[in-house]
């Protein structure tokens, strides 16, 4: 919806000011306002933006603004807390949609059969070139890629910004703490699809590297 505003250029709105009682009254008033702000700046901090006086600076390293749930920085991968199973099936949707082409996925092959398994062997995102558009998270049918809230990524080591799978994986509970309502909406769908995926994995394939050894691999072999 666009609003059309007609503005007649060349017309000014007259403000009725009281006639000054003495010379420099307006200037003194202005100085009074400034001094008032100066005094109030020593008082309590500004709590909301409807207040007009008081310091509203957020002193960053010590104080941080609360981020909105929909805030997005750069993408991460999720795995299940209990079973350690990654949600990603290496369907390559994100790799294809990524505008700057910074996602690189290697699919897993079962070493015994040589067939593809629904899990990513390697998952690389070049954080240095990622533009944080969030299309990968939008497109992911398994709710595996989500956008992180962590933004303090500056480093002197350029190479460290190429994030491998182990760097990208986060437990589901981490994402839940970031965006509880969003996770609530997609939770059911995500777990349903994860169960289907797990049925078609075997052994330690598709289990987050950090969780290997902590969880039991699923015993049943996927049905042929």
């Amino acid at each position: 919806m666009t609003v059309k505003i007609e503005i007649q250029r060349g017309s000014a709105v007259p403000l009725s000011r009281r006639h000054p009682k003495f010379l420099g009254q307006g200037m003194l008033k202005g100085m009074e306002v400034v001094l008032d702000h100066w005094f109030k700046s020593f008082g309590p901090k500004l709590e909301n933006f409807s207040q007009t006086a008081g310091i509203f600076t957020t002193e960053y390293p010590e104080e941080r603004l609360k981020l909105a749930e929909a805030y997005r920085n750069l993408p991460i991968l999720l795995y299940d807390d209990e079973t350690g199973q990654e949600l990603c099936t290496s369907c390559l949707q994100c790799e294809k949609i990524c505008p700057p082409q910074v996602i690189h996925i290697t699919q897993t092959k079962d070493p015994s059969t040589g067939k593809l398994v629904l899990a990513a062997a390697e998952f690389i995102i070049e954080y240095d070139a990622c533009m944080g558009c969030g299309l990968c998270a939008e497109v992911c049918p398994f709710d595996s890629i989500k956008m992180d809230h962590h933004y303090e990524l500056s480093t002197a080591d350029h190479a460290s910004l190429t994030m491998h799978k182990a760097d990208l994986l986060r437990p589901v509970s981490y994402y839940q703490s970031l965006a509880p309502t969003f996770w609530e909406q997609t939770k059911e769908n995500a777990y349903k699809k994860l169960q289907n995926t797990v049925k078609r994995r075997s052994g330690l394939l598709g289990i987050a590297p950090s969780m290997v050894g902590k969880v039991q691999p699923p015993e049943t072999k996927p049905a042929e």
């Binding site: 001094l35 702000h37 100066w38 700046s41 008081g54 310091i55 600076t57 002193e59």
Partner: peptide, 13 residues
Amino acid sequence: RVIARMQDRVGPN
């Protein structure tokens, strides 16, 4: 510091 306080900022601290 003073001008920062007058503009509702903190200034170099």
